[in-house]
Design a protein around this nucleic acid. Structure first.
Lengths: 188, 188
DNA sequence: CTGAAAAGCTAATGGCTTTAGCCGTCGTGT
DNA sequence: ACACGACGGCTAAAGCCATTAGCTTTTCAG
């Protein structure tokens, strides 16, 4: 029996492909085993258990998100950067709905996710710093921003906005609300 | 063997108690069976399968939410009603975190939940009507309001706001942002 | 070339959902 | 009073999942 040449990263790759195609429900070790051409118990050589696999997936997704947001806000500042962040966040969710759903709501709580989560948070705080927000005010603002963006993304991805009105229009309203109501007035 | 006197509602009661105590993960038919003093397969006399049980739970939760929001906004109008809605929504989520998590993001999609979901939506739209919003504008506004409130609730309940800043302060900022930025200016 | 670590595998356990089929209980109509 | 049918309970069993144990094979370092 030739080796399959698997590795932890390979397992995560297969798991992500599975999630992308069939949703988080479909993430089972036996499905991953089939996809990697290996017997289920063999996966335990690369991953401690399914819970650790989920953690690794969450890490990946958060890293992707951090990269995406990071490059989107690069070269921008102030409200413009906030809008860029909001757009790219929603776009990721819409383009990878199941992957987005695999993003943990409380990464900082889990030691294994704290680092990746912290990096993402850092990007958000940097954007807010560019709007003149620091310290406690920045934290409160970041929470509201995150609540709005994440709430919209979750609901859109789940099909929670059932009525026929245009979603882009709704989101533009959210962007405007955030920029006008949440950020400090610009006085340059 | 004396009868247990079970009914669909009784099964849902037990399931809700279970969820309240141990979270949605713990919702298994065998746990419900233990709690109701019955063998697992007996539950199938009252509930078609675990998926239907989840639907029934979601109905209950949405009804509770509708009642709560309905009475909270009663006798209020305009932005005051919006703030009352936001407060009671968050309070429900914090007081019944697991129950809140059992609320489906897209009830209108599921025929079995469309009615309960529609009633809740109606209450929200009525509140917005009191702010002078109708038709398409009301829908877009409702989406943003829901995104913000739901997003905050989900994240708070999951422990997603890890930093030490006061959560009530953050939420007040969100309330202010919504009222100032999302609702049409008052000119009475 | 040898030996040990790494990476497979099969077998087996225990939990969960679900179906099938059996039996006692209860209320209703006679 | 009672017979009977519907209903609500039960056991048995199948099938899927995660996980563990223990065995074999491959690989690679020395």
């Amino acid at each position: 029996m030739p080796r399959a040449g698997l590795s932890p990263a390979g397992v995560v790759d297969a798991a992500l492909a599975l999630i992308d195609e069939q949703g988080p429900e479909a993430l089972t070790l036996s499905a991953v085993a089939v996809r990697t051409g290996v017997a289920t118990p063999s996966l335990y050589k690369h991953v401690r258990n399914i819970s650790e696999l989920r953690t690794l997936i969450a890490q990946r997704v958060m890293e992707e998100m951090t990269d995406l947001v990071g490059t989107a806000v690069m070269g921008r500042g102030g409200p413009e950067a906030v809008i860029a962040l909001m757009r790219v966040w929603r776009r990721y969710a819409v383009e990878h709905p199941f992957r987005y759903a695999a993003m943990p709501p409380a990464p900082l709580i889990d030691p294994a996710l704290a680092e990746a989560g912290g990096r993402l948070l850092e990007v958000v705080l940097a954007v807010l710093r560019g709007c003149g927000l620091e310290g406690g005010a920045a934290v409160h603002t970041a929470r509201c921003l995150r609540a709005a963006v994440h709430g919209f993304a979750v609901l859109e991805v789940a099909g929670g906005f059932g009525l026929s009105e245009d979603l882009d229009t709704s989101y533009r309203l959210l962007e405007k609300t955030i920029v006008d109501g949440l950020l400090p007035a610009e006085n340059d």
